[in-house]
């Protein structure tokens, strides 16, 4: 059971922020001649080390800008870290928000094959899973309609079905568990729980501490690019509530008080 699927060692991610985005020759040449190309170093992640075992469900908590999405992108293999190393095993499937990556002109059926191919599956495998995907997404009557005519709920359902039916080893969920109507949401949460029984490893990012508690068994807290805590989910969630949520609430209260004192700012 304790096989490591993801191992992250001293991971660091540096971005060079150009003070102004330069993407054409003219600006670049002018700035270059004037020696105005300055970079501002920004470490989105600093010295992160942890490992995830097979079947573990890791929640990633943190305020906006803490580096959660950057971390997920590095794990998904999209970003290369500036420092440190990362080892992953098995098939990592990110669940994209609202069908990003679908081709609008392609029909639902064609998109299933395209999307499957993007995730690196061979054709036979997609053929095998095709019926299950269509059935689970409840899009049987619309499967030959171009995706651009789908509603956003339909797109999300299709994306969710493809990602979860194909038996991933590691599933990356980035604040996406609120797709479709209440009925489909229930179904998708059940689907995720079924995957848990099969021993899938999950990385889950959410701002809802309750959801993390329900789905995960371990959690980490990221703060300004640094790993502050790593442990069992309840412990971490309590800590997070205490340290961050309360702090935010306290700030909000202060603001409210200020507002009351200063009626001029009320109409803002």
């Amino acid at each position: 059971m304790s096989k490591e699927v993801i191992k992250v060692n001293n991971l660091g991610m540096r971005f060079n922020l150009m003070e102004k985005k330069v993407d054409n020759f003219k600006e670049y040449a002018i700035k270059f001649l004037k020696r105005e190309i300055r970079y501002q170093e920004f470490w989105a992640l600093k010295d992160i080390s942890f490992s995830v075992n097979e079947g573990e469900r890791l929640g990633i908590l943190g305020l906006n800008g803490a580096g959660k999405s950057t971390l997920l992108k590095i794990i998904a293999g999209v970003l290369k870290p500036s420092e440190g190393s990362i080892l992953t095993k098995g098939k990592i499937v990110p669940l994209l928000e609202l069908g990003a990556g679908f081709d609008g002109q392609y029909t639902g059926a064609e998109n299933i094959y395209l999307y499957g191919a993007v995730l690196g599956y061979p054709k036979d495998f997609i053929n095998e899973k095709y019926d299950e995907i269509v059935e689970f997404s409840e899009l049987k009557d619309f499967i030959n309609v171009p995706v651009k005519n789908y509603s956003s709920g339909m797109k999300a359902r299709l994306g969710f079905s493809i990602a979860t039916v194909m038996d991933p080893d590691v599933l990356i969920l980035d604040e996406v568990l609120s797709v479709g109507d209440a009925k489909f949401r229930k179904k998708s949460e059940k689907r995720i729980l079924d995957l848990f029984d099969k021993g899938v490893t999950v990385l889950f990012v959410s701002h809802s501490v309750e959801q993390v508690r329900r789905i995960c068994n371990t959690a980490v807290i990221l703060d300004k690019g640094e790993l502050v805590a790593h442990g069992p989910v309840d412990e971490i969630c309590d800590l997070y509530n205490e340290k961050y949520i309360e702090e935010v609430k306290a700030k909000a209260k202060k603001k409210k008080k200020k507002k009351k004192k200063d009626p001029a700012s009320e109409d803002k």
Binding site: A76, G77, V78, P94, A100, G120
Partner: peptide
């Protein structure tokens, strides 16, 4: 770009 930003290929 939408694809490249999300999934490794």
């Amino acid at each position: 770009s939408g694809m490249i930003k999300k999934v490794y290929v």
